[in-house]
């Protein structure tokens, strides 16, 4: 209520309203401005090495964020992605260390496991009809425990892995890092699926109004189950890439990453209340967070500020969402004769 009061009294209304309409465009604009500012102060921002590093890390988070976005669009949330990432990264490494499997086989096993982990989340949530936040809080712990079980006090180091295993992380195609290409492809695929398939639209319908979706004959629980399964799978992809990027994998790898993933989703304009937002937004959100991280480094600002900025960015994003909706409601009331 106090928000609406503030809105009608300030001139911020139209500006913030425009900002809210296309989060993807806004974020891109903000990133360009930020990039220009950083370049002015620290020209080595544009150095290929630096750009590669920023985008490769952002690409990993972006892939996980795309999966998370699928879930959030259905008005659920998956907190277990970081444990899935850590587990897959470790399991792939352990398989390569202890068995004579080929790299593609190890990756396929990792992705298969990731899909199963996502399906377990989805099954518990849809069969028992329990809130996803609680279930995935539980599996966040359980899956992390599995990493420790697999690790059994060890870690994966470069020497455990086939020679040149981490090379893809630095590989580029026409100057574009391979990981970025993977992330762009994943995002594009998901975006097209969300935009142009019936199932994609059903995700939005379920998140927008589950009851109305059911009335239309959409099988909401199946839709949610699939969303969690895909989220698990994409977390697995991110986990595999994580392993390739770092080469050294601990049982605690990727701990705390869920905050970045959810932040990327929220900042990217996917409303936590479901039914809106795009995976492209989530991916751009991941890049935006990566850029902030890099800017702090290059500008020699204290790294501690990173969390402060992440927090502030999440709060600004969610406030903008609420604000845009409030305005929308306001116009509706005003139009009724």
């Amino acid at each position: 209520m106090s928000v609406s009061w503030a809105v009608h009294r300030t001139r911020l209304g139209p500006i913030l309203g425009a900002l809210g309409r296309s989060r993807e465009l806004t974020l891109t604009g903000v990133m360009v401005v930020l990039a220009v500012l950083v370049t002015v102060r620290a020209p080595n921002f544009l150095a290929p090495d630096n750009l590669n590093q920023v985008t490769v890390l952002a690409a990993i988070i972006a892939i996980a964020a795309v999966g998370e976005a699928l879930v959030v669009i259905t008005r659920e949330v998956d907190l277990s992605v970081e444990s899935t990432m850590g587990l897959i990264a470790f399991v792939v490494g352990a398989v390569l260390r202890e068995h004579s499997t080929s790299v593609p086989e190890a990756w396929a096993m990792g992705l298969g496991l990731a899909l199963v982990l996502g399906m377990v989340n989805g099954a518990i949530i849809t069969i028992f009809r329990v809130p996803s936040i609680v279930v995935t809080l539980g599996t966040l712990n359980v899956y992390r425990g599995l990493v420790f079980f697999v690790a059994n006090g060890t870690q994966i180091s470069l020497s455990d892995l086939p020679a040149g295993y981490t090379n893809p992380a630095t590989q580029t195609i026409f100057g574009v890092p391979l990981f970025v290409i993977v992330a762009v492809l994943t995002t594009t695929l998901a975006a097209v699926a969300l935009h142009s398939t019936r199932f994609g639209r059903q995700l939005y319908a379920v998140g927008s109004d589950r009851e109305a979706a059911t009335v239309m004959g959409i099988h909401s629980r199946w839709v949610i189950f699939v969303a969690f399964s895909l989220c698990g799978l994409l977390a697995g992809v991110a986990g595999v890439l994580w392993g390739v990027e770092f080469g050294t994998i601990y049982a605690t790898s990727a701990s705390g990453v869920v905050l970045q993933v959810v932040a990327a989703v929220v900042v990217g304009g996917v409303a936590i209340s479901g039914g809106s937002g795009t995976v492209v937004g989530a991916a751009i959100g991941a890049l935006f967070l990566g850029l902030i991280n890099n800017a702090l480094l290059l500008l020699n600002l204290p790294q501690e500020l990173l969390q402060v900025i992440y927090g502030a960015v999440i709060l600004i994003a969610v406030a903008t969402d609420a604000f845009v909706r409030l305005r929308a409601r306001g116009t509706r009331q005003a139009v009724v004769p």
């Binding site: 905050l259 969390q307 992440y310 927090g311 502030a312 709060l315």
Partner: peptide, 14 residues
């Protein structure tokens, strides 16, 4: 959920 996720990061950063 989102607000306190934001302040989770914010207060830790501070």
């Amino acid at each position: 959920l989102v607000v306190t996720l934001g302040t989770l990061a914010l207060y830790r950063g501070l």
